[in-house]
């Protein structure tokens, strides 16, 4: 089973994403901010990270900057899933091009995940 790590501070959305992805045979880990995300990453190596941007403590932007410094994490694709539709360029400058704006359509989200995991 492919593993997906969801990092988002909206507990309701995390629950929904987990239900949707589990139905499509993904194994889900969750974290409510970037800091927790790195803690999970010490134990699990996911096939994909779904990353929110506006979060307490370590937000999505700080997360990708720290992510780039960790050699052991390279190769894990990140899908940025955010309510902010004005930050593409900021993330592109850091080398992250996969961006989906909330509210999203489940079919599109699933298609993007499949494409990124290469399933």
């Amino acid at each position: 089973m492919k593993k997906v790590l969801i990092i988002d501070d909206e507990a309701d959305l995390v629950e929904l994403l987990k239900a949707r992805l589990e139905q499509h045979q993904y194994e889900i880990s969750t974290a409510f901010n970037g800091e927790e995300g790195f803690q999970v990453l010490e134990k699990v190596r996911p096939d994909l990270i779904i990353l929110d941007v506006a979060m307490p403590k370590v937000d999505g932007y700080m997360f990708v900057q720290q992510f780039k410094q960790r050699e052991n994490l390279q190769g894990i694709p990140i899908l940025i899933l955010t309510a902010k539709n004005t930050l593409h360029e900021l993330f592109e400058a850091e080398g992250f091009y996969d961006y989906l704006v909330k509210p999203f359509e489940a079919e599109i989200l699933l298609a993007r995940i499949e494409e990124l995991i290469g399933r």
Partner: peptide, 22 residues
């Protein structure tokens, strides 16, 4: 931006019920 987050939760909830997930 603030509206988008609750909107995405409402949309996905509705869409999951419609898809028979629950």
């Amino acid at each position: 931006h603030e509206i988008r987050t609750p909107l995405s939760i409402i949309r996905e909830t509705t869409s999951q019920i419609l898809d028979g997930l629950h």
